[in-house]
């Protein structure tokens, strides 16, 4: 498996979920200024082909449903990167009725980036860290999600109807 992991780390396709303000930092990372293709990471339009799910900023309950459906549509192995303070602990929306505070209650986040918003270098750092971690088999959030499926669903069910918004939910 470790050889497989090594190859996985070299070629990552990223799905960026950009409803938060942090999305503004993505264009320099993707385009020629920082050029993340140097690390074999390219943006991907559909969840089915993507390996990384990048959550940029806050998630409202409404968008969380879509994110969970997207995540469950992605093929394993898959990784989630939380981007900015909002995904860690709510950030400046800590007392908003509409947004979720801790992303790790609903999705298995492999890596968080601090900042409000993080600069492109911090995002590049995260990608390098993620590549290393994937190659060494450190990040296995997708396994955690399968193992603790009931716990995640219980947390999600507090906010919305999980039957309607999950893929293959018995």
């Amino acid at each position: 498996m470790s050889i497989l992991n090594k190859f996985r780390g070299k070629s990552l396709w990223m799905l960026h979920y950009c409803t938060g303000c942090g999305a503004i930092e993505m264009p320099p990372v993707m385009t020629s200024r920082y050029d993340m293709e140097r690390f074999g990471i390219i943006p991907m339009a559909t969840p089915r082909q993507a390996d990384i799910l990048l959550i940029t900023g806050y998630l409202a309950v409404k968008t969380l449903k879509r994110v969970i459906r997207t995540y469950e549509q992605m093929h394993s192995p898959k990784w989630v990167v939380g981007f900015g303070a909002c995904t860690v602990n709510g950030g400046m929306y800590w007392d908003s009725y509409a947004t979720i505070k801790k992303l790790e209650l609903y999705l298995p986040v492999d890596l968080y980036i601090a900042g409000c918003m993080p600069r492109p270098e911090a995002i590049m750092d995260a990608f390098i860290e993620l590549r290393k971690g994937i190659s060494s088999g450190k990040y296995e959030g997708w396994k955690k999600y399968i193992e603790n499926y009931d716990w995640y669903k219980k947390n999600q069910a507090k906010l919305f109807d999980v039957k309607k918004w999950s893929v293959n939910y018995e």
Partner: peptide
């Protein structure tokens, strides 16, 4: 200094 990455939210 603005770089801080972690898997654990308590380290923030």
């Amino acid at each position: 200094d603005y770089r801080h990455l972690s898997e654990d939210i308590d380290t923030f």
